[in-house]
C-alpha cells in the first residue's frame, strides 16, 4: 500500500501549493505530475512528499524551484516543421485578409514557439499588423522568453527545422552569437506582449485570430483540457484558428462541435461560425 500513501501525499502537497500560493496543479495529468514531483523530491533532498509539503508551506523560497520542476518545458524552434508549413501555406492566406491580427501563444514557456511564429509572420509580411500575446504561469520562463537567448548548440537543429518549415530567410539573420549563446534580435519582440496568464484559473483577455498551444494540454487531465479548450473557443474570432500539438486532439472535448478540422493531420482547427 506504499504507493497509495504516496498518492495521498501528492494530493495534499498540490492542495498546499494551491491554498498557500494559488498555483493550481490539482487537475494536471497525474502520471506526469507524479514523475516531476519525484524528480523534485530527490533533487531537493526530501524523504517524503509530506516533508516537502511542510517545507513549502513555511518557506516561500521553495516555490520557484518547485514550479521549475512542475512547469518548465523544453521545446524547439519550428518543432514539427510540417505544422509551421501548414500555418504558412494554409492559415496565412486567410489571415492576410484581416487588417489587424492577434495571435496567442498559450503556455509559451521559454519562447521557442513564439519566436518561430514571429519569424514566420515577418517572412510572410504579417508581423507589423499582428499583436502577439505570449503567456505562461512560470515567471522565470516568461523572463527567459523575453530575453530570447538560446544555447548555440541548439541552433543548428532549429535552423534545419526552419528550413523544412518552408522558411525563406536565413535563421542566422535573426540572432547574434557570442559565448555559446544565440541572442535573438529585440525587434522580434516589438509586437509581443508577455503576460502571466493561467489556463487553469484565468479568463479570456482578447479576441484572437490564431491560438497556438502545442504540447501544453497534454499536461492537463480531461476536465482541465476541456476548460482550456472552452477558453480558446471563447477567445477566438469567428473562423479563427487553433493549433495543437501533433498528438493532441479535440476528440474527447465537449467543445469539439465548435471547431472544424482545418488541417487535420497537423491538428489545426477552425472556429465554426455560429
Amino acid at each position: 500500500m506504499h504507493d497509495k500513501i504516496e498518492d495521498i501525499e501528492i494530493r495534499l502537497l498540490l492542495e498546499a501549493l494551491f491554498l498557500k500560493y494559488h498555483y493550481d496543479f490539482r487537475k494536471y495529468a497525474a502520471a506526469s505530475v507524479k514523475r516531476r514531483l519525484r524528480q523534485a523530491k530527490e533533487a531537493m533532498g526530501f524523504e517524503t512528499f509530506s516533508a516537502m509539503q511542510e517545507a513549502l508551506l513555511h518557506d516561500a523560497s521553495m516555490l520557484p524551484r518547485l514550479l521549475g520542476y512542475l512547469t518548465v518545458q523544453v521545446s524547439e524552434m519550428f518543432r514539427d516543421p510540417s505544422y509551421f508549413r501548414a500555418i504558412r501555406e494554409k492559415v496565412v492566406p486567410h489571415l492576410r485578409t484581416y487588417p489587424s491580427l492577434r495571435l496567442w501563444v498559450a503556455g509559451c514557456s521559454e519562447g521557442e514557439e513564439l519566436y518561430s511564429l514571429v519569424i514566420l509572420f515577418r517572412e510572410e509580411g504579417l508581423e507589423d499588423r499582428t499583436l502577439f500575446y505570449a503567456t505562461d504561469i512560470n515567471q522565470d520562463a516568461l523572463a527567459r522568453a523575453e530575453a530570447g537567448v538560446f544555447d548555440l548548440e541548439r541552433i543548428q537543429h532549429f535552423t534545419e527545422n526552419h528550413r523544412q518549415s518552408g522558411g525563406h530567410s536565413s535563421l542566422s539573420s535573426y540572432y547574434s552569437a557570442a559565448y555559446g549563446r544565440a541572442s535573438f534580435d529585440k525587434t522580434l519582440r516589438k509586437q509581443v506582449v508577455f503576460a502571466d496568464h493561467s489556463l487553469v484559473t484565468d479568463a479570456v483577455f482578447a479576441e484572437m485570430h490564431l491560438i497556438s498551444c502545442r504540447n501544453v494540454l497534454i499536461y492537463f487531465d480531461r476536465e482541465l483540457q476541456d476548460r482550456a479548450i472552452g477558453l480558446f473557443k471563447d477567445s477566438l474570432a469567428r473562423k479563427g484558428f487553433l493549433g495543437l500539438g501533433a498528438k493532441e486532439n479535440l476528440r474527447f472535448s465537449g467543445h469539439a462541435g465548435a471547431f472544424l478540422d482545418f488541417v487535420r493531420e497537423e491538428k489545426i482547427y477552425q472556429r465554426r461560425t455560429e
Partner: peptide
C-alpha cells in the same frame, strides 16, 4: 508510443503523453 513523446499510463482508463525531456 508516438515518436518524440513519452507514453504514460494515467489511470486504468486513460493514457497520457508528455514532451518532458
Amino acid at each position: 508510443a508516438p515518436p518524440n513523446y513519452h507514453l504514460l499510463i494515467e489511470t486504468e482508463n486513460s493514457l497520457a503523453l508528455s514532451s518532458d525531456e
